[in-house]
Design a protein around this nucleic acid. Sequence first.
DNA 1: TCTGGGGTCCTAGGACCC
DNA 2: TCTGGGGTCCTAGGACCC
Length: 421
Amino acid sequence: MYALVDCNSCYASCEQIFRPDLRGKPIVVLSNNDGCVVTRNREAKALGIPEFEPYFKIKSRLQKHQVHVFSSNYELYGDVSNRIMLLLASFTPAIEIYSIDEAFLDIPITLNKSELITYGQTIKQACWRQQRMPVCVGIAQTKTLSKLANHIAKKSHRLNGACVIDIIDQWKPVFSKISVNKVWGVGSKTAQKLKLINVVSILDLLEQNPKKIRNKFGITLERTVRELNGERCISLETQPKPKQEIYCSRSFGHKVNNLRQLNESVANYAVRASKKLRRQHSLTQRVYVTIQTSRFNEDHYNRSSSIPLPHPTNDSRTIVKAATSLCHQIYREGYLYARVGVGLLDLTESTHHQYDLLTQEQHQASKLVMGVIDQINQKYGDNQVFLAAQGIPRKRQWNMSRDFKSPAYTTRINDIPVVKI
DNA sequence: TCTGGGGTCCTAGGACCC
DNA sequence: TCTGGGGTCCTAGGACCC
């Protein structure tokens, strides 16, 4: 059986850990640049605050209902997430960290239904006792069903945070009442297409012929249908698979109208992406850059381009050079840019790469330099060592705005909470 | 005054070449 | 002179997830 453990309103719950005075009160967390509402806790949902609504549009409504507003504090959420994942790993070594707030656990032993419920609730209690993180647990034969069980656990208070789907037939009346777009992998577009063939509920999808679904919708949805019927098609990935493409993109705090600042930001995202690339021991063979004005403007300018690299590499310096030259190519004067992004494509594994005589030595030198930079930044904090192309951190005018950010309680020495007696 | 997230994978369709 | 199949490469954008 698989258990899916998912934190309840993760970011909002992270903020409450060090602000117990906010328990039971409505909280929203905003996306980067304080753009949209990305997390609402139960109390905020009850007030009818919609998800992904731009903050500026509902600011007055939030104030009226005294909703507590936070900017994203990824240092805090990342650190809390690591602690939760460590705790979950103590239940079983077979764990797949699926996202910052979710993990699949393989439950190897054969437990009966009531034992499985107890197992789920033990996990839930441990997360609350040890980390003050509320979670729900969904347990079932397949990953798709355990996602669904988790969804049901979140909706039904009667289940007390743990839902077990063991005999699928018994759940069919419930499945007939849940809309098909709640299934993992079925988004709004697929749901629309499914409606045309009268597939509206999860039960409707479960009862489809997998072969016919494959012809009309592709292999991904065929797997979903099989998984809903208890057939395992998606396996547990305990070792994260190396990504085939890596991206880093951000919106600006203030619009940017000149090439110098655009280049600086592109260099920074290229460095971030390169760091991710080295962490997964890969090399890139193609660099991609996109620059965009606001997509809500009438004359929306949106260009992207990519170039192949002469040799596969993970050297920030080579990647930054390629990225800034691309930025230069696609830049047009007279626009207010809102967002840029850097992508690394055509990735290969660095451990298996064969270098020729000419590049071998160069690669060794590059590996040493990047290793030292990564170590220093790891030890003394990000951006202690940076490339000139990235600009001086304090002077980066394009940096994003985070007006309601909470302290980095767990990762910065000056931000550690003090208890006064 | 103005404000609208980020990452990954995939595909359609155009441009170009043989 | 004009036509046309088939492959590769590239960009734009769709779809889904969190």
